[in-house]
């Protein structure tokens, strides 16, 4: 916090200098909205799993980061964890988001905890365990967060492979519990329909069409 504020390019440079080949990709995106088109910057750093923790420590030297959330994608052969931080909050128009992307192969889904550095990460780490089936090593509290206790083991809602949510667990609420004992809706008779159409308003024509469609559905 003490040093002068670095530009997004300088921050990327700090990491590429420190970690070299461990960084697979680093890029900066910017977005300009409103009339004045003032930019906000997003920094994306794709980094090796083993280097993530030193990289986070490096980030903490620059400015104590606010951890927004950890998100995760199932890419097929691996899982991607994205640690979304923000730094330089509290400076007008000066905040950057810094996202560290870590790729985990599906045969080794382990990630060290960061709760010793940022205690507030506990929630989102617990969520990643239950939603993606990632094992957070040394997590101080490994209970489930959102899923119910009776939710089956080995099913991870955000996964797109065979461990995702199976079809039989999905309930179609719209199709359930339709009351069968309701009186039938009044149906516009053919003659009335003709009269309505004769009036010629498009709205009425649409209205006249509808009941016959519903009648067909009921016959099914």
């Amino acid at each position: 916090m003490s040093e002068a504020r670095l530009t997004p390019e300088e921050i990327v440079e700090v990491f590429t200098r420190e970690f070299g080949d461990g960084i697979r990709e680093a890029r900066i995106t910017e977005r300009r909205e409103g009339s004045k088109k003032i930019a906000n910057y997003n920094i994306w750093i794709d980094i090796d799993r083993d280097l993530f923790r030193p990289a986070l420590e490096k980030l903490m030297e620059i400015h104590f980061p606010h951890l927004a959330v950890v998100s995760g994608s199932d890419l097929g052969d691996g899982l991607e964890l994205l640690y979304h931080f923000t730094i330089y909050y509290g400076t007008r128009h000066g905040e950057y988001t810094v996202t560290f992307t870590v790729l985990l192969p599906k045969d080794d889904l382990r990630m060290p905890t960061i709760t010793d550095l940022i205690p507030g990460a506990l929630f989102t780490e617990r969520e990643k365990q239950e939603m993606l089936g990632i094992e957070i090593v040394d997590i101080p509290d490994s209970r489930r967060l959102f899923l119910p206790e009776e939710f089956p083991e080995g099913v991870y809602p955000w996964r797109k492979d065979e461990t995702g949510v199976p079809d039989h667990m999905v309930k179609d609420l719209w199709a359930v519990g339709r009351p069968a004992n309701r009186p039938a809706r009044p149906v516009v008779k053919k003659e009335e329909q003709g009269e309505v159409q004769a009036e010629g308003t498009t709205e009425a024509a649409v209205k006249g069409k509808k009941p016959s469609e519903e009648e067909e559905q009921r016959h099914e």
Partner: peptide, 21 residues
Amino acid sequence: ACGISGGPFYDSYNLDGPIDD
């Protein structure tokens, strides 16, 4: 609406509704 027919939450693995069910 969501208690009647699910509304926007019409399909989910964690819902047991609608209420009249």
